[in-house]
Design a protein around this nucleic acid. Structure first.
Lengths: 340, 340
DNA sequence: TTGTAGGCGTTATCAA
DNA sequence: TTGATAACGCCTACAA
């Protein structure tokens, strides 16, 4: 370790002023003379002084830190969905002088109620939960209580927890409409479960198909569990039971890729024999599969929006937040066409 | 906000002991009677008390936080290489009660010397730089100074900055040896530059080929800039100038994928007409391209190792760290075979 | 075995 | 326009 870090008092001595004057300069208080201000600022420059973050936090009872909580999945940091959201959040937070700490909602985190720690200990001013599920009942206990907790792409019907989510209902509808417009009438659905937005997506798609006069029994569903492997399996059983399907709607990009892999393995051409349309497009999905039509939630913007919303929340601009962000259909090529 | 958060004094009052007794209990000081200890712990449980992190940091002059600094690339959080490293670091840090804050080494970060801030302000006890380049000259100014700064997969020849890196020399050698063993004699090289380890990789590969009696001019090189697109271009010019190449060694997985894309676009079969071998295998590379042989640096372990090394450093177990971690050749299938 | 008291480096409230 | 001074909550000698 070097010598002791410089403190306000050091700066004050150097300038022959009081420590509180230095503090006032640092907080841009207008009632400081230009003379003093520049003298102090010069000394700060010269000495490389930086305010001690802990002292400041202690005095202000705030940390200017957001915690981003990821689900306990294998290699979750390497997943594009979470990484893209995290990047957006980082950008938004960073622009406002906030830091981002990462956390994983593993068993220890939940059992020891680390989520309470983070806020009680003032390590973070707010928490952002990515990839939470409806099984995460502990989240409901965070309702009210004045804690700044926000869910992303999930929410609870029976709790007023703040959230920001892509418009999954619109996504489901857009996906279905697109396929209908192309003439498809036999459409399978593969989505995740136990996330409210996934259910919204599913319902909207089903609803749209039903409204178009397609009987519910012609619209089979299977659980893709948000994973490529599971979706591949799911697509397999769907296609086996219903070889008449001409299209499949998948709840996210990974599941869409799973469907496409399944098709490939079965020798079904995509998108000639089958059309696939997926949600949560992150660039790799589209790039890897030019034939895939997607509904793009603009994840990067979602992240940015989440950060901004958190900041506004800090400023007390609202009590609870329930925001839904627009999504767009992205047709990469004139691909999907109904079979014979 | 709810009421004021509980403090040690609150707990002390509840138990009819002094505040310092509570502190001693929390630090597991053995000179506290079992009676008192359990009484205090019970109160802590009951009230949900958590120590204020800022007060603690102020008193101990430490934060138990690592900063992980990422390069300023578009969507860097969504890259598998960085995500995997970050995940490993998180796991290691977390197991020791450390938090991880993320940072991006963008212009602001560098210009305002935020890297000094982080440590001076005691926001972090140490910094871990991922994806730094030899152009990041500012890092050299961090030499000595007692700051806990560690580079991952990069180092400076002219500065004693701590680092942990995969054994890129071994990787280059393994790649070359593998191809030689398969009978290849015309091998192209596509690597990144301005990262010391990339140069090590390149030199080791070239050296190995030369030692096997292959003239240097038969081993053309092109800059792939660590990007799939650039590597695709690079492979294009390499193959155009040297259609006799039967194999290409790429410095990382992205560049390897770029090479494979190039080959695909040119109608060259991989690995029949051409063999490709890449470094920095992250699962997607292998999964996406079963024909690709890779050198696996076990990134997750690297991350874990980095975190553990940082912790040991905190404990003063060494002054500077220069560690190299083993890599493994991964042959996915008996793919690479020389052309005619 | 426990309590007292000073200090950590800020912010914020008053006086001057 | 500035300077004392009291928090903020915890840690740690040192005293009892």
């Amino acid at each position: 370790m070097p010598h002791r870090a410089k403190t306000m008092t050091d700066i004050a001595k150097e300038c022959g002023v009081s420590q509180s004057t230095v503090s006032l300069v640092l907080s841009n208080n207008p009632r400081i003379s230009e003379d003093t201000r520049s003298k102090v600022l010069a000394a700060i420059q010269r000495t490389g002084y930086r305010p001690n973050i802990h002292a400041r936090g202690l005095a202000t009872n705030a940390s200017r830190v957001f915690s981003v909580v990821l689900p306990d999945l294998e290699n979750v940091f390497a997943e594009e969905y979470f990484g893209t959201l995290l990047g957006g959040i980082y950008a938004g937070a960073s622009a406002a002088g906030y830091k981002v700490v990462v956390d994983v909602a593993n068993m220890k985190f939940i059992r020891t109620q680390e989520y309470m720690d983070l806020l009680n200990s003032r390590r973070a001013d707010g928490m952002i939960f990515l990839g939470s599920s409806l099984y995460d009942k502990y989240l409901v206990s965070l309702e009210g209580g004045g804690l700044r907790v926000m869910l992303v792409d999930n929410y609870f019907l029976d709790a007023k927890l703040s959230y920001v989510a892509s418009d999954h209902k619109a996504a489901g509808r857009l996906a279905a409409e697109h396929l209908l417009k192309l003439g498809h009438r036999r459409i399978g659905l593969i989505t995740g479960t136990n996330v409210q937005t996934a259910q919204d997506f599913l319902e909207a798609a089903e609803q749209t198909l039903k409204a178009a006069g397609i009987p519910v029994e012609d619209t089979p569903w299977a659980d893709g569990r948000f994973s490529e492997a599971k979706a591949c399996e799911a697509a397999g059983s769907l296609l086996a039971a219903r070889p008449d399907l001409t299209a499949i709607i998948a709840g996210n990009d990974k599941m869409a890729l799973g469907v496409m892999r399944c098709a490939r393995e079965k020798g079904i051409r995509v998108p000639d024999d089958l059309s696939v349309i997926g949600m949560d497009n992150v660039r790799s999905a589209g790039a890897a599969s030019p034939g895939l039509t997607t509904v793009d939630p603009h994840l990067n913007n979602v992240g940015l929006f989440v950060a901004r919303k958190m900041l506004a929340w800090m400023h007390g601009e609202f009590e609870t937040c329930a925001e839904t962000l627009p999504v767009d259909l992205v047709v990469r090529q004139s691909t999907a066409r109904p079979r014979g």
